[in-house]
Design a protein around this nucleic acid. Structure first.
Length: 140
DNA sequence: GCCAACGTTGGC
DNA sequence: GCCAACGTTGGC
């Protein structure tokens, strides 16, 4: 199983909205970046991802899992190359892990979040996943 | 609100 | 195919 991190501006799509969707989940639409789309193509049902609030909050606030593989993005024009997966909220983290905490942590210096802040969908290694879960007070 | 980083577009 | 110009994202 692979691990990921998915970013959202809380004003556009927040963790609370994701939780409200329950088991129905929500299509992660609106991504218009090839790198991010390619990572979504690699996702498999059952993979887990950190739900990260960008902009105002800048912290990992919850955990989601992939419940459907990539499908054409309904918000994009027909025939466009954009696709998206569907994610379901697994649960909130006990303690949000902020970007500054991640940056201050030597073990997490190689996270894409630290080195390429603009990429909205990114892979997380198993070691990073474990470490951030520990900081967040949740089971990996 | 500003600015750096990055991706995309278009002229040549 | 290169590179300048532009637009967007996200941290601060």
């Amino acid at each position: 199983m692979a691990y990921w991190l998915m970013k959202s501006e809380p004003s556009t799509w927040s963790w609370d909205q994701q939780v409200a969707k329950g088991k129905e989940g929500e299509m992660w639409d609106g991504v218009r970046n090839y790198q991010a789309r390619n990572f979504m193509r690699e996702m498999k049902v059952g993979d887990k991802a950190f739900f990260y609030h960008s902009q105002t909050e800048r912290a990992v606030v919850g955990i989601v899992k992939i419940i459907d593989e990539v499908k054409p993005d309904p918000t994009a024009e027909a025939g466009s190359p954009w696709e998206c997966v569907t994610v379901e909220a697994v649960g909130p983290v006990k303690t949000p892990v902020t970007l500054s905490e991640i940056k201050a942590e030597p073990a997490l210096q190689d996270m894409v979040l630290v080195n390429n802040s603009r990429l909205s969908v990114q892979p997380v290694t198993a070691a990073e996943w474990k470490y951030v879960c520990k900081m967040a007070g949740v089971k990996p």
